Amino acid sequence: MVHGLDQEDNGPLIGALLRRPFLASRAAIVDALHGAGFDDLQPAHLAVFQHPGPDGRSPGDIARSAMTTKQAMNNLLGQLEGGGYLRRTVSPANRRERVVELTDRGRRVIAEIRRAVEMTEGEWSDALGAGEYARLRRLLAELNEHLE
């Protein structure tokens, strides 16, 4: 037995249970972004826009949050910079460091992502019932705090 789980149980483990809602949420975000005219954005770009967002952060910090390499993140940032979503500027606090600044277009993306996630959360709340969904959300928030 591991943490109270019977090892002979063939049911899905927590990663599998979290994966499907994560992928559904991501698909809803991409669909909403494309529907709002941001059709050059791809699922990989969501790593840049994930909470707490890139504004005022260094590329290295964003890469760490996204659990990717600096090189991969700089590639995504370059694509988004080319699309007019953000710009990389010299940090006023450390002239050797760059920071990301969202443009108005980038801020509209963040707002659209928020709308898409709120719609998804509403659907899930309807499916589970408001009380159970609130409990799920609270437990996930507590788990996230523990993992920090």
Rank of each mutant, 00 (worst) to 15 (best):
L17I: 02
T69M: 11
T120R: 15
H45E: 07
G53M: 09
V117G: 01
V30T: 10
P92L: 09
E8A: 10
A72F: 07
W124L: 14
G122Y: 03
G82Y: 07
D61K: 15
L80Q: 04
R96K: 14
S25G: 12
G78K: 12
L128K: 08
G78S: 11
L80R: 02
S65C: 07
M119R: 15
V100P: 00
G106C: 07
R19V: 00
L46W: 08
R115G: 01
V48F: 03
A24H: 11
H34T: 10
R19L: 12
D104L: 14
H3C: 01
P54D: 02
R26M: 12
R114Q: 13
G82L: 05
G78T: 04
G11I: 06
S25P: 00
E101F: 05
A24M: 11
L46G: 04
H34A: 12
M67K: 15
L102S: 05
A116T: 05
H51W: 13
L128V: 03
P43T: 06
Q79V: 05
Q7F: 06
N94C: 05
R107K: 14
F49D: 01
G131I: 02
G106L: 10
T120L: 13
Q71W: 06
G78H: 09
M73D: 01
A116M: 11
V100C: 09
D39G: 11
Q50P: 00
R95T: 05
G56E: 09
Q7I: 11
L128T: 04
D104S: 13
G4I: 03
Q71C: 01
I110K: 10
R107E: 11
D31H: 13
D61L: 14
